[in-house]
């Protein structure tokens, strides 16, 4: 298996594209030129500047060769107000409304299972383990909508090395936080809580798989999986577990929430694949979030456009069977 080493000469932070460049260009120009008056217009247009939400949460980041250069990120507003995060309720706007209650500090991630010895990582230590990189990735939800999200994090493989899994570790399982008092959706939605997701070891070790702490150059808003989540850009979004409290290395394929709920609809692999449909809708096309209705529909890309990097992981596998 090929694992690309991270850049030995990280670009100094002075050369990083300023955050303003990530922001919706129109909103940025408008906000600069018109000041407060533009904010009202932004709200109407569904655009919100990151600063409006949290001011003191900026992260120092470096560039990454694994980040897409030619994609325009979805607006910060849409990334933070159109979420599937059932712990906060089943509707898309529930997480933005309800996620504020979740206490993300203090926070620690427990590592157990097939490891040399059990470890507990404090969130602050975890964030300092490696330099944080800007990674602009495509994001494809199983519900046939898509975004482009400028995540911040480092390759999960860097973290896994610190966990020292034994040779019998074949899969990694991620357990999300389960606090009914802070997450009203847990009472409301009938799923097997806590939320569980998993990856095969080689998928987890792939450099594209991101241990994620932020987006748009600042710490993750709660509704996007704060304080730490994984992002697996070639898989449907539900594979990218949010608000992780436990990482478990296991011998056998772990039970995962949506797969257990509806095994014929949500496979363990759930790679983005235009040729394998959801039981209720086609996956051939997807809708771009934030685009006007006449530009929303676009073809789904195999492995969400990451086929060159990840197709080799599934060589010889029948992707219709292991969907």
């Amino acid at each position: 298996m090929l694992i690309r080493k991270s850049d030995p000469n990280p670009i100094p932070s002075s050369e990083i594209t300023p955050r303003s460049a990530y922001m919706n260009r129109r909103a940025f120009i408008a906000a600069g030129a018109l000041g407060a008056a533009a904010l009202a217009a932004d709200r109407l247009a569904g655009v919100m500047r990151p600063e409006q939400v949290q001011a003191d949460t900026k992260l120092a980041t470096i560039q990454s060769p694994l980040s897409a250069k030619d994609l325009t990120p979805t607006s910060f507003y849409n990334i933070t107000h159109y979420n599937n995060f059932y712990e906060f309720g089943p509707n898309k706007d529930d997480p933005a409304r309800n996620a504020g209650k979740l206490q993300t500090s203090p926070w620690s991630v427990t590592v157990e299972g097939e490891v040399k010895k059990k470890k507990v990582f404090d969130i602050d230590a975890l964030m300092k383990l490696r330099p944080l990189e800007d990674r602009v990735y495509r994001f494809r939800c199983v519900e046939a909508w898509s975004m482009v999200i400028p995540w911040v994090g480092y390759s999960l493989s860097e973290f896994i090395k610190q966990c020292e899994p034994t040779s019998s570790a074949k899969y990694v399982q991620f357990i999300s936080v389960d606090r009914p008092s802070q997450e009203p959706g847990i009472e409301e939605v009938n799923l097997n809580w806590p939320y569980s997701e998993g990856l095969r070891m080689d998928e987890a070790m792939h450099p594209l798989t991101l241990l994620t702490f932020g987006l748009y150059g600042q710490v993750l808003p709660n509704q996007d999986g704060a304080p730490v989540r994984v992002v697996v850009p070639w898989k449907y979004g539900f594979k990218s577990a949010k608000s992780i409290v436990k990482v478990k290395f296991v011998k056998d394929q772990p039970g995962t929430t949506w797969n257990e709920m509806a095994p014929n609809t949500y496979g363990f692999y759930s790679n983005v694949n235009p040729n394998v449909d959801h039981t209720e809708w086609s996956q051939k096309m997807q809708r771009v979030i934030g685009a006007p209705f006449w530009k929303q529909l676009e073809p789904t890309l195999m492995f969400n456009g990451y086929g060159d990097q990840v197709a080799s992981l599934y060589k010889g596998m029948d992707l219709n069977k292991y969907f």
Binding site: N78, Y82, K92, F293, Q296, L297
Partner: peptide, 15 residues
Amino acid sequence: HLLENTLGPDPTHAA
């Protein structure tokens, strides 16, 4: 709102 693209993040679904 469809023409103005002010129907929210996913106008197709909203419509």
